[in-house]
Simulated scan of single mutants.
Amino acid sequence: MQFTIIKYEIIVVSFVALLIFLLIGIAYLTLLERKFMASIQRRRGPNVVGIFGLLQPIADGVKLIVKETILPSHSNTLVYVLAPIFTFFCSLVLWLVLPFGQGHALYDFPLGLLYILAISSLSIYGIIFSGWSSNSKYAFLGGLRSAAQMISYELSMGLVLLCVILVSGSFHLGSIIESQVYSFHSVTLFPIWIIFIVCILAETNRAPFDLPEAEAELVAGYNVEYSSLAFALFFLGEYANILFMSALSTILFLGGYLPIIELIPLPGILWFTVKCLLHALIFIWVRATFPRFRYDQLMKLGWKYLLPLSLSFLLVESSILIIINPY
Results as ranks from 00 to 15, higher is better:
3 F>S: 12
4 T>V: 14
18 L>K: 11
26 I>S: 02
29 L>A: 12
36 F>E: 04
44 R>S: 15
46 P>I: 10
64 L>V: 01
75 S>Q: 03
80 Y>C: 07
83 A>T: 04
88 F>Y: 13
93 V>R: 04
97 V>T: 09
98 L>K: 06
111 L>Q: 13
111 L>P: 01
127 I>W: 14
141 L>W: 13
156 S>V: 04
157 M>W: 14
162 L>W: 08
162 L>M: 14
167 V>R: 08
175 S>H: 14
176 I>W: 06
180 Q>D: 02
184 F>I: 06
190 F>K: 03
190 F>Q: 03
193 W>M: 15
202 A>H: 04
203 E>I: 00
207 A>D: 04
209 F>D: 00
210 D>S: 09
214 A>Y: 09
216 A>K: 07
221 G>A: 08
221 G>V: 13
228 S>M: 09
234 F>I: 06
236 L>F: 15
240 A>F: 02
244 F>R: 10
245 M>A: 14
245 M>C: 12
245 M>G: 06
247 A>R: 01
248 L>I: 05
252 L>A: 11
254 L>V: 00
257 Y>A: 10
257 Y>K: 07
258 L>F: 07
264 I>C: 03
279 H>I: 15
283 F>E: 07
286 V>R: 00
288 A>K: 01
295 Y>L: 09
297 Q>C: 02
302 G>R: 00
313 F>Q: 04
314 L>C: 05
317 E>Y: 08
325 N>W: 11
325 N>K: 12
